[in-house]
Amino acid sequence: MRDVLPDLLRWWRAGAPVGMATVTRTWRSAPRRPGAALLVGPDGSAAGSVSGGCMEAAVYELCREVVADATPRLVRFGVSDDDALDAGLTCGGTVELYVERVDRASFPQLDLVAAEVAAGRPVAVATCVAGPPGRRGRRIVLAGQDRHGTLGASAVDAAVDAEARALLRAGRSGVVRPRSAENLCVLVVAHPAPARMLVFGAIDFAAAVAHVGRFLGYRVTVCDARPVFATDRRFPQAHEVVVDWPHRYLAAEAAAGRVDERTVVCVLTHDARFDVPVLRHALDLPLAYVGAMGSRRTAEDRRRRLREAGVGEAALARLHAPIGLDLGGQSPEETAVSIAAEIVAVRRGGGGAPLSARSGSIHGGGRVPHP
């Protein structure tokens, strides 16, 4: 939903009804995940996707129907992999969708959701997609410690609140079925705060890494102890540039609770004075990824220094050094792509091999959701 939110908000503010189809559940090789959405605007234009192109035409027409009759629907579209190939579609699999009419009356909290997302604060939208008459279409929005709206009963609201916040903390969207209400199915679309990318070392490669990190949806910080290099002008794609010793900055951010299991750390200085202290601390934290730049000789020397500093073998095994996948790149931009590719592979559980050399589904499902 996040990618279509600007269009949805624009039409909502204009008072125009919009048809919205949202993925609730998927099976097998369906390419989009819960929370992905397709909009059909009042002018007939479309935004977003729920199937990578396979079912968009049918879903488009269904959205138009729902706008006309204002009756929400929970539907499934399914096609075998072989049939999809014969029909020239991109994939098979099964997708369950909740299709609804969105306007100011049906979604009065949309302005709040958009404001929280724009501010980078976590927010979750819980919508009843199946249940008794009068419940379907009701929703609550969880922002901060507050709950806005109701699903029709305080006990149900409390149960969904707890489950939705758990999904939000995990950064996942999905369906919940509260025990306090039989036959009630609630879709939770989670908008977690963006995951962080911490780039240590204000070198030319860092500018390219910051650029690709922002493209991937991370909130990017570039940090270096040398003020002459750590400037906003040199790193326009970073959300912030900090002048501080890397290890001191990382320790302060961790103590303040501003790094978590989704955070990725890229150490690019290849200078032991900076590398060893920050890596020693990073490898002691439950981060998603820790990588360090340098030649193989530098990497081995760095590992020796880290061992001498008390870092154990289990922690060292989490260090990706030399950083990046072997793509044969040489420029800062090509190197940044290789680093980004390794981060994606580590976070999603990919092997980094060409898809053409593999068999089976290419949408295998990763360990950790997108930032």
Rank of each mutant, 00 (worst) to 15 (best):
L8W: 02
G19M: 05
S29F: 12
A46I: 11
V50R: 05
S51K: 03
M55D: 06
A58K: 02
V66T: 14
V66F: 03
R73A: 01
R73N: 00
F77R: 13
D83F: 08
D86E: 15
G88W: 04
E96R: 04
E96C: 10
A105S: 13
S106T: 14
Q109K: 02
E116Y: 09
G120W: 00
V125K: 12
P133N: 01
G134E: 01
Q145M: 08
A153H: 15
A153K: 06
A159D: 14
A170I: 04
S173L: 07
L187A: 11
A190C: 14
P192I: 06
A195R: 03
V209I: 09
G217T: 00
Y218A: 02
F235W: 01
V241M: 01
D244Y: 06
P246N: 07
A252S: 13
A254S: 11
T269E: 08
D271Y: 00
F274Y: 15
L279N: 01
D284M: 12
S295G: 03
R296D: 11
R297D: 13
A299F: 10
A299H: 12
D301F: 14
L306D: 05
G310E: 00
V311N: 00
I323S: 08
G324Q: 11
L327H: 05
I343Q: 15
S359C: 10
G360K: 04
G366V: 07
V368A: 13
